[in-house]
């Protein structure tokens, strides 16, 4: 692996302007992805993970705006409005496959559109390539399917077609925003397998955005846990699952079925993710944190490096406030 990360997001700030307030949906997110790596971004809904995904592709809709930080793709800052130069290098797959395909054009038409832009294929050649791609993503009877309209495909098939469309751009990085959430469990597994396969074959980097710790465990090498617009813990997947450092990560892990005592009720995290409207003056998890102590309400925790490359933003790990840490 080269030294320079493929994509590096630094201190990303995305603000939504409503009539009354500024909502900091993403408030200083930092993480990176190396070539061929699968990185997870995990958090509850409302934590800012989808906005982060959209920011990477420059797809934040009004009234949202990227107001700070940088998104470096191979060292080049995309936030300086040069997404257009890198279209196709980064592709995205959304949660709901039925909304991801334009209902009035055939599957083939939409894949060929990408092929025309990125591989300069037209006519027969483009159609043949589109059929190949559909076969690659495991769509049976591809020559017929290529002329069908999106509503004629099942959810799982449609998501495969979306992935085929993404591949038609010949990307280096595939951003998957909850790609399996809208699908049945068995189909979820198939899509995850497909992505793993494609990654192995094409040396594709994948950014997995999900709320599902199970998916993270199965599919990723590295995890960033995001809470209220901030990354609160980052670690290699295995290490994170073995020794979660941040209380929020622990809470997330406890809510996976089968990880705790089967007789006990599955713990859930009480409360909701707050929507930050100003700079942090405390730990945003404090109101829900089972391990919160006094300082948590007056100090905003910074990332503390832990063993390996991992880090966590929790005062428990801050040596200066070790009184909390010792309670462990």
């Amino acid at each position: 692996m080269s030294d320079e990360p493929l994509l590096s997001v630094r201190d990303l700030e995305v603000v939504f302007h409503t009539e009354r307030e500024r909502i900091h949906a993403v408030d200083g997110v930092t993480f990176e992805i190396r070539e061929g790596q699968t990185v997870g971004l995990v958090g509850e809904s409302g934590s800012g993970k989808s906005v982060t995904a959209r920011s990477i592709l420059g797809l934040v809709d009004e009234p949202g705006r990227i107001e700070g930080g940088e998104i470096l793709y191979r060292g080049e800052d995309l936030t300086e409005d040069n997404w257009a130069d890198h279209r196709g290098d980064i592709a995205i797959v959304f949660q709901d496959p039925t909304n991801s395909l334009n209902p009035v054009y055939t599957i083939g038409n939409q894949i060929e559109e990408a092929l025309r832009i990125h591989q300069d294929l037209r006519g027969r050649a483009a159609t043949d390539r589109a059929i190949e791609l559909l076969e690659d993503v495991g769509i049976p009877d591809a020559p017929r399917r290529v002329d069908e309209y999106p509503h004629q495909l099942s959810g799982g098939m449609a998501q495969r077609a979306v992935i085929a469309m993404a591949l038609a751009c010949d990307p280096d990085l595939l951003v998957c925003d909850e790609p399996t959430t809208a699908l049945d469990v068995t189909i979820q597994a198939q899509i995850l397998d497909l992505l793993a396969e494609l990654q192995a074959e094409q040396d594709l980097a994948i950014l997995f955005i999900t709320h599902d710790m199970g998916v993270i465990e199965d599919a990723t090498d590295w995890v960033n846990v995001i809470y209220a617009g901030e990354v609160v813990e980052r670690a290699p997947t295995e290490a994170l699952f073995d020794h979660p450092a941040h209380p929020y990560t622990r809470a997330l892990l406890e809510s996976i079925p089968g990880r705790t005592d089967p007789d006990e009720r599955l713990p859930t995290i009480e409360g909701e993710v707050p929507t930050p409207t100003g700079p942090a003056t405390d730990c945003r998890f404090a109101p829900r944190c089972p391990e919160a102590f006094e300082d948590c309400r007056s100090v905003a925790p910074e990332h503390v490096s832990l063993d390996g490359d991992r880090s966590a933003a929790c005062l428990l790990h801050d040596p200066a406030r070790s009184d909390g840490g010792e309670r462990q």
Binding site: L57, I92, F94, S100, L101, N102, P103, Q110, H118
Partner: peptide
Amino acid sequence: RNEDYVDLARAKGVSERALVWKHIFRN
């Protein structure tokens, strides 16, 4: 304009013109 498929088309690299005429207006 707010549909996912429009965003996806944009991510695909479709030019703004084609986006408006082919993907938005038609629908």
